[in-house]
């Protein structure tokens, strides 16, 4: 097992290569997923706010002739 990790003395170079590649790819993926989740929450909030605003406006226009 130790032999596998030492990689004939080049272990540090090889594991650094694989480790950095994995790290960079995971960071990019996680940042993308986090951004996507945040944007989705923001979009949902915005849509509910605007949706809630719309019927109120139609109601006021409906009420305007009666008042």
């Amino acid at each position: 097992m130790n032999e596998f990790f030492s990689m004939g003395g080049y272990g540090s170079y090889i594991w650094a290569s694989y480790g950095l590649a994995a790290l960079a790819m995971i960071i990019l993926l996680v940042m993308t997923l986090r951004g996507l989740r945040q944007s989705q929450t923001e979009l949902d909030q915005l849509e509910t706010v605007l949706k809630a605003r719309r019927p109120r406006r139609t109601r006021t226009t409906d009420q305007s002739p009666t008042s």
Partner: peptide, 27 residues
């Protein structure tokens, strides 16, 4: 495959952001 996955996720993210911008402007 990894490129495809991140590409699709980032396209969704970008579409969301554009829609947010449009809604904010119209609002």
């Amino acid at each position: 495959g990894y490129y495809f996955i991140v590409l699709v996720l980032r396209v969704r993210l970008e579409l969301n952001q554009r829609r947010i911008r449009a809604l904010q402007l119209s609002g």
